[in-house]
């Protein structure tokens, strides 16, 4: 498949040079090339992703009973119920926002600091990177959930340490004030993926910039703020957008740690968990779940849009494109 594509690309590329002078044709050529390059995704989107997505949008205006397959148009009923008639919904919103807005900045901060620390070519950074990345590959398996609960349980490690330093033992997982913090901590603990992306980004910063700065007598901190940070902004931007999306969608961790209930008192009832409960529970109305999901999409899109709009003020690309 790929070799065919490659051939096509080079053939069209040859044509290009002969017509490059004529603007209109150039534009048409670019269109062709552009769509050719994005065609893998576009075909996949139109063929595999669009139908489920469009279906879920349509379903959000219906009462859809998965089991009987019965669909009934209810207009805005689902949205009305969500906003005015469902106390659990707002608790889910609150828990999700709290989680996202605390864990994302912390996670990114850690990831950036550690990446910067482990970027310089010291001899054992590879090993250290492995150590810091390791928590991120354990994911949300049952074993991790058990381990996490064990550490924060009434007689677990954290409480042992608390007693050691003269503090009182706390019931982290069952306490309505603290439970969500164990999940935030877990998210921050797994900062490996943005760290790795930061590392890849640091790798791309040309060394000459640092050399030139050294000649100018710049210190480590001013190098970081004047070279690293600005040149890393495309990657920071990417990580920010993605981590925000991911944190809004966090499901597995909440699911395995609370057993899928959002306990205690719905303080860890994350949005996608609630979408799942409403879509798949017995007698569930998938239309209601879809409506919630689409509200979420709009909210995340709004946040992402704001970040994108703001990006022209703080993200620097080395190109004149766009």
């Amino acid at each position: 498949m790929t070799s065919v594509l490659q051939k096509d690309v080079s053939k069209v590329g040859l044509d290009k040079r002969t017509v490059a002078q004529k603007g209109k044709k150039h534009w048409r050529h670019n269109n062709l090339m552009g769509y050719l390059f994005i065609s893998p995704w576009l075909i996949g989107f139109l063929g595999l992703t669009l139908i489920p997505i469009a279906t879920s949008l349509a379903l959000s205006f219906t009462h859809y009973d998965i089991l009987s397959g019965h669909v009934e148009w209810t207009g805005l009923e689902n949205f009305k119920r969500m906003f005015y008639d469902d106390p659990r919904y707002w608790r889910a919103v609150r828990a999700t926002f709290k989680f996202a807005f605390i864990s994302v900045p912390l996670k990114l901060l850690f990831a950036l600091l550690v990446a910067d620390l482990l970027y310089n070519a010291r001899r054992f950074v590879g090993v250290y990177r492995a150590i810091y990345y390791a928590p991120s590959i354990v994911g949300g398996s049952v074993a991790v959930a058990v381990m996490w609960r064990q550490i924060f349980s009434g007689r677990g490690l954290v409480n042992d340490l608390m007693l050691e330093v003269g503090l009182e033992r706390k019931l982290w997982l069952g306490d309505i004030k603290y439970a969500i913090w164990t999940l935030i901590l877990m998210a921050v603990w797994q900062f490996g993926s943005p760290m790795l992306i930061f590392l890849a980004g640091l790798k791309q910063i040309p060394n000459e910039y640092y050399e030139a700065a050294s000649i100018d007598g710049a210190g480590a901190i001013s190098k970081f703020t004047r070279i690293t940070l600005p040149l890393l902004t495309p990657v920071i931007f990417f990580n920010l957008v993605m981590q925000l999306i991911f944190s809004f969608m966090t499901f597995t961790q909440a699911y395995v740690v609370s057993g899928g209930t959002g306990k205690p008192l719905d303080t860890t009832l994350f949005y996608s968990l609630y979408v799942y409960i409403r879509s798949f529970g017995v007698g569930a109305n998938m239309g209601y779940g879809s409506a919630m999901a689409w509200v979420m999409l709009v909210v995340i899109a709004a946040f992402t849009g704001v970040i994108f709009l703001s990006s022209r003020f703080w993200v620097f690309y080395d190109t004149t494109e766009n």
């Binding site: 019931l171 069952g174 057993g259 205690p264």
Partner: peptide, 12 residues
Amino acid sequence: PHISEESEVNTL
């Protein structure tokens, strides 16, 4: 047990 204590084992 207090509910917060109990909640630790309920789904285990």
